[in-house]
Design a protein around this nucleic acid. Sequence first.
DNA 1: TCCATCATGTAAGGTGTTACATGATTGC
DNA 2: GCAATCATGTAACACCTTACATGATGGA
Lengths: 204, 204
Amino acid sequence: MEHDNSTNHTNNKENGDIPARNTLRYIILGLLGARPMTGYDIKQAFDRALASYWNAGNSQIYTTLKSLSQAHLVVSEVIVQTSRPNRKVYRLTAAGRAELDHWLAEEVPERFSKDEFLIKLFFCGEIADELALRHLQEHRESLLEQLAHMEWARQQYATRPSRRPRLLEYQMLVREYKEATLKAGLEVTERAIARLQEKVNQPS
Amino acid sequence: MEHDNSTNHTNNKENGDIPARNTLRYIILGLLGARPMTGYDIKQAFDRALASYWNAGNSQIYTTLKSLSQAHLVVSEVIVQTSRPNRKVYRLTAAGRAELDHWLAEEVPERFSKDEFLIKLFFCGEIADELALRHLQEHRESLLEQLAHMEWARQQYATRPSRRPRLLEYQMLVREYKEATLKAGLEVTERAIARLQEKVNQPS
DNA sequence: TCCATCATGTAAGGTGTTACATGATTGC
DNA sequence: GCAATCATGTAACACCTTACATGATGGA
């Protein structure tokens, strides 16, 4: 059954270690791993490329940058600008790079997923079919919007060849993954809408 | 500097406008809407039927029940048992039912999604393909497990006809939705694994 | 003997969201 | 004049996770 396999895989839980996940910290390290950025740049990266898989508000970004800075995982340099607010550009330190590499190599922990749409739909048997139908139609709109964003992202990747194609490769894979799941959800949603519309229009 | 006028309390959240989402509160109301349950029963319902869409630990369930009780949305009754710990059975009040109906009718708010696997994969261009391949293979295992659970759930629904078929109907729809997205993810994952294995085994 | 099941909770701390605060420049 | 963009942050609180705490019964 279970072996105490202490041979490989460094156990780095020295003593009272941090059980926390700190995903946002690593995402920011990951972004800075590609190029130095300001908090503002990072927020833009979220909005343009990451928001479908993870998102964070400005407040979280700036406080996390500060804390990364205090942990010496990043350093900042202020670029003075005249007709714009100054830019505080962050870059990885060697320790930051090591942290990032460690996280990237680490297994992804299983974690509770949360889906507000599905969990509400789960209980829709307690209310009128008309309301559930409306939820499904709204969800369909949302999925179509997200798919449009995925198409936009696809074109971005296709038209703008990068200096570092390996980075792009995985970003395109993630996009493809997300698009596939969105399409699968859309199919189920549209079938459910069709079924419900029949039921609502011709109650037996 | 802004001074507040002497007229009111400084508490600006006084008039019941809660910006909070409180999803777990509503999920528990939704479960109690079907039948009275104890905290333990609710945890079991999560583990058996809800965990794929939302999950919560015991501690959160019990504290939420307490707070729902204080808000008079549920009431509890202790059922004394001799050879087992006593059961504290909760049921909806009229106010609780009204809250639940209101939430069910409300539009689902768009919210940041979080996917730890995809966000890590996004950055995998910064490390070796071998590591990314391992992540994809582990993810594949995870998806297969989840799909097996979905199949188990399908059989549960198929074999156990319910007194309230409308509740079941939507639960089956949610299951179908989740299964479809898992399958779509699995396909993309397996294609990526095949591509990477070729690349790793025959580096150009 | 050991483990799973039944059954209910508290305490601490980490994570995430909303609201607030500032202020110059560019384009309509 | 008005809005958007650029640019950086703080405060308060809501939400979620982990660890801790207890203890009887029944089966392998």
